[in-house]
Amino acid sequence: MITSTKNIILQGKHQKPILADVFYFKNNKKKSVIVFCHGYKGFKDWGAWDLVAETFANAGFFFVKFNFSHNGGTVRQPIDFPDLEAFGNNTYIKELDDLETIIDWVSATDFDYKNEVDITQIVLIGHSRGGGIVTIKAAEDSRITKVITWAGVSDYKNRFPKGEAFDLWSKNGVYYIENGRTKQQMPHYFEFYTSFIENEERLTILRAVKQIKIPHLIIHGKQDPTVNVKEGENIHSWNPKSELFLVDGADHVFGAKHPWEPDDMPKHLKAITLKSIEFAIL
C-alpha cells in the first residue's frame, strides 16, 4: 500500500513557503529519491502527476513533488494561481533555490522519512521549464546522481519577448500572458529578465548540459507544440553521453490535461514514466 503525505509546508529562501508531497511504500528500506519539478504555469497537483508519483512509488522509489514558492499557488489553495503577484515576481534563481531547499530537506539528518530514503541516490526529473532547472542543478550539485527531462527547454533567453514586445515590457515593467485554461492575465515583472541577465552564465542550459557527468535522459514528444522536439535534440547533441527518447505522436504534456479524471495515465505519459523508472533503476 502506497503511503502519501501531501502539502508539507517548507520554508523557502524567498519569503514564500514551498508545498511538497511525498509518495512511497513504507517498509523502512532505503529507496532512491525522485524529485519532480513542474513547469511554467504548472503545479504539483496538475493533471496526472499524482498517478506518476504512485507509479514511481510502486516501483520502489521515494517520490517527491513540490510547488515552486512563486508559482502562484498558496498554502490554502495550492492548485491554480490565486497569488498572481508571487507568480509575477518569480525568477529562475528562485526556482533553483527552491529545488536546493527540497534537496537539503530530503538529505537532512532529521528528515521525517530518513529510514525510507537513500540520499546517495537522488534523481531529478523536470517537465518543460522545470527541465532547465533540473539540468542546471544537476550540473552544479554533486548530490544528484541522475537527471531526466520531460519536454525540457534548451534556452531560457530565447523564450523572452522580442522586439516591440520587449520594449513595451521594459517600459511598462510588466507584461501579461493569458492562461488558456483559467483565463487569468498572468503578470511577468521585468525583474524576471534582469535577474536572468545578472545570472546569465549560470542560467545558460547549454553550459550546464556540457558539464553534466552523470547519467542523463532526455524525453520529448515529437509533436510537442510548445517546446519543439529540436530543443530536445539540441540538448542531446550537447551531451553525447546522454540518452534521447522521442515519443511518436506525443504532445507537450504527453496526453494529460487538468483536471485528469481517469484512474490510468494517458498512454504517452505512461510510456515515459516507465522509461524513466527503467533509467532510474539501472
Rank of each mutant, 00 (worst) to 15 (best):
E54I: 00
N58E: 15
N58Q: 15
G60D: 13
F63L: 07
F63W: 02
V64C: 13
V64I: 15
F66M: 06
F66S: 03
F66D: 11
S69H: 01
N71S: 07
N71D: 08
T74G: 01
V75S: 01
R76F: 02
R76D: 12
Q77Y: 09
Q77K: 12
Q77F: 10
I79E: 08
D80P: 01
P82N: 05
P82D: 09
D83I: 02
D83F: 00
L84I: 15
A86R: 00
G88V: 07
N89S: 11
N89L: 09
N90I: 10
L96Q: 09
L99G: 04
E100G: 04
I103E: 04
W105S: 02
S107H: 05
D110A: 11
D110N: 13
K114Q: 05
D118R: 05
I119Q: 08
L124N: 12
H127A: 09
G130D: 08
G131L: 07
G132Y: 14
G132W: 10
I133F: 07
A138F: 03
A138D: 00
E140R: 13
S142F: 11
I144V: 15
K146D: 03
W150E: 12
W150I: 11
A151W: 12
G152Q: 01
S154G: 14
K157M: 04
K157V: 00
N158I: 11
N158R: 13
R159M: 03
F160G: 14
K162Q: 13
G163M: 00
F166E: 13
F166N: 14
F166Q: 14
D167P: 06
L168I: 14
N172D: 15
V174N: 06
Y175T: 14
Y175I: 12
Y176H: 09
I177H: 02
E178K: 15
K183C: 01
Q184T: 02
Q185R: 12
Q185S: 15
P187D: 04
Y189T: 09
F190R: 15
F196K: 05
F196L: 09
E198N: 15
